[in-house]
Nucleic acid binder design. Sequence first.
RNA 1: GCGCCUGUAGCUCAGUAGGAUAGAGCGCCGGAUUCCUAAUCCGGAGGUCGCAGGUUCGAAUCCUGCCAGGCGUACCA
Length: 672
Amino acid sequence: MYNSQMRQGEVHQRLRRALRDSVQENYGVAIDDIVQERPPKSSLGDAAFPVAFDLARIAKMAPRKIAETLAPALESVQGVARVDVAGAGYLNVFVDRASYVEDFLAPRKNDAPKTHSKTIVEHTNINPNKAAHIGHLRNAALGDTFVRVLRYRGHDVEVQNYIDDTGVQVADVVVGFLHIEKKTLDEVRAIINEGRFDYVCWDLYARVSGFYAEDRERLKLRENTLKAIEEGTGPEGPLGELIAETIVRYHLTTMERIDVRYDLLPWESDILRLHFWERAYELLKEKKAIRLATKGKNVGCWIMDLGTEGEEPSEQDEKVIVRSNGTVTYVGKDIAYQMWKLGLLDRHFQYEAFHRYPDGHTVWSTTSDGTTASTTSDGTTASTTPSGASDAPSFGDGETVFNVIDVRQAYLQDIVQRGVALLASESARDRSHHFSYEMVALTPATCRELGFSVSAEEAKKPYLEVSGRRGRGVKADDLLGALETKARAEVDKRNPEMTGDEQRDIAKAIARGSLRYFMVKYTKNRVIAFDFDEALSFDGDSGPYLQYAAVRAAKILQKMSTSSVDITFPETLAESFETLGDAEADEIWSVMYEAMELGAMTETVLRTEEPAHLARFALGLAQKFNGFYHRFKIATEPNEAKRALLLLVVQLFHRQHKTALELMGIPVPDRM
RNA sequence: GCGCCUGUAGCUCAGUAGGAUAGAGCGCCGGAUUCCUAAUCCGGAGGUCGCAGGUUCGAAUCCUGCCAGGCGUACCA
């Protein structure tokens, strides 16, 4: 999929090795991880090593003097042009520009050795009882970006979207249809046929809490419905199934709008029906990880003790795993699911095709019974697949697992991890990562704009939580619609001669880019206080800004009848640099060098589990290119050697920037 | 109460391996378009990095305490 160079120049590796050896030789100190950084200004060099400061302490010598001793070792490294000792003792390295680029463009064999271990990323996980909202978009955008970066770095990734079809949220909508709306299963089918069932459920779900509030006795309805759904009985079971499946298909369609896709949908009901839970339950009891509470507030429940070891167990540290009526909490079911994902549960799902994307990729679904119709993207029914299709890929058994789940569930995730550690091992626990992120909230002002009531107390808060239960939120499709409308107007302003179809397609690309960038540009652990004007901005730090830079570069390449796909290394590159003044050469080089840093940046994203780094990188790169674009006229440059160099900059930028955008799911339109 | 997160320019945020003069976008002021798209670029103003100690050659970054805000601490997820 991605064929551009993934690895940072080998020069960097040689530099670190040479430095490590020289430190060992001169000071007898073994430093395995040589710290490498970027100087604050590109004119100071391409790579900086502050190692002399560490040595100063050990060797009791001035850092500058140490740096001077170490400099020759770096100077003799192949591909290095110059080494400066700067500041109080930095070793600043200038690479040989022409050979660095040549090295970067050289075809590589067997780059990034493929590992056979699989990484499973679980994301989206929307309760299948109402339309997706902006918080779900953040989850999906973060998860999908991480998936793309993992794949770019050569990892084998499986994407799972867990469907909690036996939870309280689905039960509430079932209660809504049966007891508020008084609808039969067939009547609900008729409503589904009218369309936008996810929106219908959004509104209905918001009414259910009021229904319970009027008469607390009605909460019994929820309890009984939950049990019926788990057992698949009564009118509740089939109705819950119908609602969940219909809503899941809406969610897939919504996510496809932002180019987010899945490999497998594991259904919670299958965890129960295929006895995954039963098996985990046995194991938990065997290992004495849970016990039956015989007194206190949790009497009759199977609970896990969370208190620190050695201390007197207290009731506060009891976590209910199995409720007194025998139903299982989310934590219990998730322990079973986690164990399966890690390849540690001796139980297997059956699979069937659930949905096929236009390019043929299939989303599979777990199943425990019967058949389910599979639909293609245009909504037609393609086939019915028998239970346990034999051509299903092999799912599960991940070496590493990432669970993209919001930070409010950190406590629950921790309990799940404890369960895994107790059932398997500490090392099994460490293979599972809670990829946590903060919520998307609404500012009180935005709430009022959207027509939601805001109490006096709420008005004082910096932001208000989105609440599906109260119907307070921005639906994903509404936001995408608003973005498309605005993008369409902007496109029309600039390209009035275009056909409506062309304008629409470009507007969609801009809307998607804008949304996806907005969702990853903030670091994960920051609450996004959603503001419409901010989200709809197409200037500056925004998706369209990044897209615009790519479009500009593409336009130049088009005009010069070339592309960034096959870049040939211009033999005259070294001379081209010499025809320039230092300032010009530095400016041009800094765009090239930055572009070539993409590979290193993706490694940072994986190491830190923070996609925002990629967003920031792409913004900085686009800014550099836009500056370059204004300063140099590329296509009309009369000096041939210089023109070749400028063209190379555009090619390098275009290839790398486009890849960075692809990694975030941001498309690049032909024009905009 | 306890746990986790946050506090950086008027606003929204980067600064995730302890490094050099703390950056970006928006907003504000002033400029740039006979030439590859002005969704752009250039310049300017704007900072007690919440407060106080500590560690270090060096702290927005690490440690301690405090202040402010958010989230969690359910037989919801």
